[in-house]
Design a protein around this nucleic acid. Structure first.
Lengths: 202, 202, 202, 202
DNA sequence: GATGAATGAGAGTTCATTCAT
DNA sequence: CATGAATGAACTCTCATTCAT
């Protein structure tokens, strides 16, 4: 009854409003950081009133979440594209490459976005991404892997968190191509290790 | 010049006050999260006035930083203790074990603390920890490793970030013993991979 | 860029709000002095929330400045009115009379207001007032005055500062009419002195 | 009974402490302005504890007052010295010269000190200075001046406030020698004017 | 649907002053 | 006499959010 409903933008104009808000928020996040990402600021930059903003978004976090989900989708998409374009590379490399080149924005932006994704349904949204990742990885292995929870966790998180850490420390001046190689090596050698153990166990 | 100096606690009473503040801050962080960790709240819980708090800490962040540095020291200490107690285990396992059992507090607490450590001298304080880690790892390898920046980065960050991620997702119910094993495998197989490449290159 | 913009009151309601804030501030300044002129106090007296206050004024000083500028304008206006109403009196007397009767409020209020005017663009806003004053004075002299910087300074500051001092020492119980006469004498005799010197010098 | 007594420094060591406090306060006032002149800051700079400071001074204002009175004394002294050294100059010029060269410190410092002098017994301490000034001026006049309250006020305040204003506006780059001349002219021509009126009236 | 004026809890912080040691 | 740890009222200012227009 008393629940406030947020309008779902079905009309074209409304769609444009939502886009403007998300775009404005992203720009501010990039240019001025999470601390200056205030709702009033976003509304002003988007050219809408603060009241309008609140008709489309429950609260400040919802805006960030929308941006993050959009990026998340784009990365999934990118994995597929990479595999289609260069079918000779391994799934692992495709994933790592997508994780490197997909996300836009500065380190701070990336962290803010992955944080919000985590806060809002860490067990839901984010792990969906991880599980998709895992499915791809399974294909890479010669033998069927006998994965425990912990190995699964490592396979689905290592690349993501290492790349997040790399993004957060730009002063290390890591070469993205080499980094791609090394992370691929890291994961492949771990999968080999898992295979050996699986074989032995069987 | 313009810096306000904070008193360094020389008297016994002052020492106790500082301890009380840090302890109170830690408890609040645990029980109520980073958002409710306000300076007034800390002072109240510590049983001191807000003015007293500000005599010893520049600002809110300084309190967090102090806690984080204390924990950081404790972990370094723990690595040493583990190696002394169980000399048969590898350096890698000692480090991973210390990283698992060292940090106190909930996932959110750990993240907040590692964040503050990173914010305040990401290239200073934190990498000191990483480099010490690296030195230990070098000893584990049979051949002298020929490490590029990117491989170094992976070696020094993989365990830390994976464990941070694990702490952040308690709903996965990971078994810490198994997790320790798997991370050790991950790193050992990567080091083997590096060794093989080093050998070939030589 | 980093400047926070303050809303300019476009709606009628907003105009009234700004008026209420200025009025409240003036009353408090009168009744309780500059030290008790806190932003919370002003907002409360004005019947608006503290947040509203800060939407229209950058900070506490900006409120004082707004009041001072308003008064400053009123005095300029008053000089003109006096000359129109009593065209037989000299410019000097008109200015002195305006300076005596124009400013509202207690001595402390006047000083606070002239201080804030001085702080914010001492070389800008305030000297504009002084220069206008000077232009009027020049007309009073028979011969064209040959004014050095220092004489100019005296002409433009003597009346203002003496009246400010008089306002600051109400216990002297100075009669404003006589004071007006004496200050006019002071300035006229100085201008005569300047004229004599100018004549001689030519 | 319950009245707090402030110690009068009779011993040598105590004298030194008081001196150190006043000196420290003056330096801070000069270097960092009235806003940063905190009691803790003064005590630290003076090398004494805050508790000690409060044994010699009732409150923060008392420190400023002590400095101001010291300066005030020095100026009175300076007038005498100037007259003794250069007996040919008029009393007026001696006073003006002393007011120009006597006070130490930046404009802000001077204003702060004259303000405190005024606040604490505007009718007492400060007018004592003014009356001494007036006595000297009376001697300069040929005929006995028949001074009303208002004329007295002008004679005793004009020079002081004009010089204070001049000090407050260093950007005008007034030449102190010329300023001395002009203020002397201002006052002399006013005294002449007064004389003429006195003569006529008699 | 859109607007933007208004809200207000509450954050961080300062500093004159006291008093137990 | 000196110390300096402790006090806490008071202050400025922010920003997510609401709701009358």
């Amino acid at each position: 009854m008393t629940e406030k409903k947020r309008r779902k933008p079905t009309q074209k104009r409304a769609q444009a409003t939502v886009e403007a808000i998300l775009e404005a928020a992203f720009q501010i996040l990039e240019a001025e950081g999470l601390n200056n990402l205030t709702t009033n600021h976003i509304a002003e930059r988007a050219g809408v009133s603060i009241g309008t903003l609140y008709q489309y978004f429950e609260d400040r976090d919802a805006i960030l979440l929308a941006i993050a989900q959009k990026e998340s989708d784009e990365i999934r998409q990118l994995v597929t594209e990479i595999i289609l374009e260069t079918p000779e590379i391994s799934s692992i490399r495709a994933i790592v490459r997508a994780l490197i080149h997909g996300p836009q924005g500065s380190p701070e932006t990336r962290i803010a976005l992955s944080d919000v994704l985590f806060r809002n349904g860490g067990a839901t949204e984010m792990s969906r991404q991880h599980l998709a990742l895992l499915a791809s990885l399974q294909e890479s292995a010669d033998v069927e892997l006998n994965l425990g929870r912990e190995a699964t966790f490592i396979l689905t998180h290592a690349a993501i968190y290492l790349l997040r850490a790399a993004a957060a420390e730009p002063e290390l001046e890591l070469d993205t191509n080499i980094l791609e190689d090394e992370i691929v090596y890291l994961m492949e050698s771990y999968i080999n290790n898992l295979s050996m153990r699986s074989t032995r166990t069987d």
